[in-house]
Simulated scan of single mutants.
Amino acid sequence: MMLDRRATLTLAIAAGFAAPAVRAQPAAWRPNRPIRLIVPFAPGGSNDIVGRLVAEAAGTLLGQPVIIENRAGAGSMVGAEATARAPADGYTLLINSAQSTVPAIVANVPYNSVDDFVGIAVAGFSPYVLAVNPGLPAQTAQELVALLKANPGRYNFASAGLGSGVHVGGELFRAMTDTQFEIVHYRGGGPGVAAIMSNESQFGLPTMASSLGQVRQGGVRALAVAAAERSPALPDVPSAPQAGLPNLIHEENFPILAPKGTPPEIVAALSLAFRTAIQRIGPRMIELAGVAPREGYDTSAKVMELVREGVELNTRVLRQAGVQPQ
């Protein structure tokens, strides 16, 4: 009996110490007001389209709305800098497919694309689309190259802004084909596609998300997707190798980022909500934007490694093509 009483007393004492330890475990972070998701481009582009799809689903999971704020300018640098300088409290996020292209093509970036951010999730991946105004006398990619060679400097290429993925694609296309044309910078993917439709610019390499609807409706004509294989979103459009441009492999991704210094528990809560949202809306993103989720980016470190590798890859490819920062 004495042993039983001692055992009971020991357990009671242990329980008394354990209970506060259990109560001290922090609850998962939950926002108590709306979250801003900065899109550093004008409405209608790929980041805007994907951002709105993800924001709606993530807001439902978080219990607070995720509000899109378009902060266009300087090929995404205006919005990215605003995010980097925002309080690191979980209430300001960024979605930016140009995060790893800007440092490769812009000489003086006012923030560090890797070190000034922490990763939340990756919304998906998508190839760019070689597209022309329907009135341009080029039915294939090879006919476009021939037309540009025969008329150096005559035609305009629609960019989504200095340092954007579309701008990088234009520089790559120019170097690969040894053609001359004017690159015109617009304030995002949507305005760039609109310029091709109006014939203000005659061709471009827009994102699939910003051009998919107009390709399907005939507002622009797609000559190739900048991928090794055809895209399920545009199954009738040849891949770059099929179109005679085997080295024009150019794909965008959509990292979702927070300012450096955001507490780990906030990063973890946001990451779980956004990754869950992305998986839930994956089929919709493929259908509406040609953007497909991809596994493997389930930690902040992996998201930032994608950005870091992108900076290195874009810098290497552009330097090999003879393109220097502007």
Results as ranks from 00 to 15, higher is better:
residue 111 Y to S: 12
residue 19 A to E: 01
residue 238 P to C: 12
residue 227 A to C: 12
residue 114 V to N: 05
residue 203 F to A: 02
residue 175 A to Y: 01
residue 43 P to W: 08
residue 18 A to E: 05
residue 79 G to A: 11
residue 95 I to K: 01
residue 34 P to V: 08
residue 181 F to P: 00
residue 265 E to L: 04
residue 69 E to L: 10
residue 22 V to H: 01
residue 34 P to R: 08
residue 222 A to H: 08
residue 269 A to F: 00
residue 6 R to E: 15
residue 75 G to L: 08
residue 27 A to D: 10
residue 120 I to S: 05
residue 130 L to M: 07
residue 247 N to H: 13
residue 324 Q to N: 14
residue 124 G to H: 07
residue 202 Q to N: 04
residue 106 V to Y: 02
residue 31 P to N: 09
residue 140 T to V: 12
residue 39 V to D: 11
residue 124 G to W: 05
residue 90 G to L: 02
residue 182 E to N: 15
residue 106 V to F: 03
residue 188 G to S: 06
residue 289 A to K: 09
residue 31 P to H: 06
residue 161 G to C: 08
residue 237 V to C: 11
residue 201 S to W: 00
residue 109 V to S: 06
residue 11 L to Y: 10
residue 134 P to W: 03
residue 164 S to Q: 05
residue 272 L to V: 11
residue 86 A to Q: 09
residue 260 K to S: 12
residue 26 P to Q: 01
residue 316 R to E: 14
residue 285 M to W: 04
residue 200 E to P: 00
residue 114 V to L: 14
residue 149 K to M: 07
residue 75 G to K: 02
residue 231 S to K: 10
residue 164 S to K: 05
residue 198 S to E: 13
residue 20 P to E: 03
residue 66 V to Y: 03
residue 167 H to G: 01
residue 210 S to Q: 10
residue 63 G to S: 08
residue 113 S to T: 09
residue 95 I to G: 01
residue 233 A to Q: 09
residue 187 R to S: 13
residue 129 V to P: 02
residue 270 L to E: 03
residue 3 L to V: 15
residue 282 G to T: 14
residue 109 V to W: 01
residue 132 V to W: 00
residue 306 L to A: 12
residue 83 T to F: 02
residue 1 M to I: 13
residue 323 V to Y: 01
residue 113 S to G: 08
residue 147 L to R: 06
residue 188 G to W: 02
residue 11 L to N: 10
residue 126 S to D: 12
residue 29 W to Y: 10
residue 144 L to F: 00
residue 4 D to G: 12
residue 117 F to V: 10
residue 304 M to F: 07
residue 188 G to M: 03
residue 67 I to M: 15
residue 202 Q to V: 01
residue 176 M to T: 00
residue 293 P to Y: 07
residue 33 R to W: 06
residue 279 Q to E: 15
residue 58 A to F: 04
residue 169 G to Q: 01
residue 128 Y to S: 12
residue 230 R to S: 11
residue 264 P to L: 07
residue 3 L to W: 14
residue 48 D to M: 06
residue 270 L to H: 05
residue 83 T to M: 13
residue 122 V to T: 12
residue 296 G to L: 13
residue 325 P to E: 01
residue 128 Y to H: 15
residue 225 V to Y: 14
residue 124 G to A: 13
residue 159 S to Y: 02
residue 158 A to W: 00
residue 221 R to G: 03
residue 299 T to C: 13
residue 18 A to V: 15
residue 240 A to R: 05
residue 30 R to W: 04
residue 151 N to E: 09
residue 45 G to A: 10
residue 193 V to G: 00
residue 115 D to C: 02
residue 7 A to Q: 15
residue 238 P to W: 11
residue 112 N to S: 15
residue 240 A to G: 11
residue 202 Q to G: 02
residue 238 P to S: 13
residue 96 N to G: 05
residue 239 S to N: 12
residue 46 S to N: 14
residue 185 H to K: 04
residue 78 V to H: 07
residue 316 R to G: 10
residue 293 P to H: 07
residue 200 E to N: 12
residue 91 Y to C: 04
residue 147 L to W: 10
residue 32 N to A: 14
residue 282 G to M: 05
residue 166 V to N: 09
residue 79 G to M: 06
residue 97 S to K: 03
residue 171 E to A: 00
residue 321 A to D: 02
residue 291 V to L: 14
residue 90 G to A: 11
